[in-house]
Amino acid sequence: MGQLISALFVMSIGVLGCAIYFYGSNLLLDICFPTKNRPHLVIAKNLRITNTIRPWLFIGPALLALGFYLIFPVFDSLRLSFLDRTGENFIGFDNYSWLFSSSEFFESFKNNMLWLIVVPTAATFLGLVIATMTDRIWWGNIAKSLIFMPMAISFIGASVIWKFIYDFRSGDDAQIGLLNAIVVFFGGEPQAWITIPFWNNFFLMAILIWIQTGFAMVILSAALRGISEETIEAAVLDGANGVQIFFRIMVPQIWGTIAVVWTTITILVLKVFDIVLAMTNGQWNTQVLANQMFDWMFRGGGDSGRGAVIAIIIMVLVIPIMVWNIRRANAEMEGR
């Protein structure tokens, strides 16, 4: 109870502080440069001043937060990647040469590439298929809600859920993991799935696909509904069958959305960390960059140089998507 009250107290201080800033700063501006009940010329001058200052009052906190938490760290990570584990002494490209000669890095890089190829493709494809099919049946919305649901589950929660499915009992004990139970039912040998090198990657990816398919489905379903009925009717009159209509009329019209879904999931995959941490912590050849980076942040008291180098690699992988995003947004703004 005491904990609850102090939590409430701390929360209200945080939220109120933020609200007071916005209200107070604007009030102060209006008091310093009044724009009411003054001679017209004074008002005109004050208005010019407030119109110059006020945008910065509005955008200032966001700008500071973004600057300190996102922009400054990009440059600081770059700087740290040239320093040693304590972040004090310059060691040139040592961290980079360490990275490129470390087998652990190549393992995580290889795994990351595997994740990048499999997860976005599978999630987008499944999402598209499910979106198309659920649009045609009366209980489609219920089905969509259920498939969308894993989106709400944390990676760590999902990991527990799936670890339970992959659970393995040796010997003749009854299997309580669903996957092994099915294997045994069909006469197979139970396996400790997450310890089988290479293939275990796919068992981890299944978790993320399970979570992300719903996201892809919801967005693609909306895009499919946005396709004009008339183009489909025209295709029917032109004699196209269902499959032809899907691939030659519908899919081309939603390419843009497919690309957005695909890149969004790609970004997420690059940052994936919780699942690997919880399932294997990188053992049995399942390491990925994000987890490796986290590992180096704290391993043996932390090595900021090596951690930073791995972060930079992740950033470099993201940059093409970032450029593409900005271009797309700019084109959109000009279109307005």
Partner: peptide
């Protein structure tokens, strides 16, 4: 652009 900057960049600094 910042929409896609990975968190990992920020952690150490």
């Amino acid at each position: 652009g910042l929409l896609v900057v990975p968190l990992q960049m920020s952690l150490i600094p």
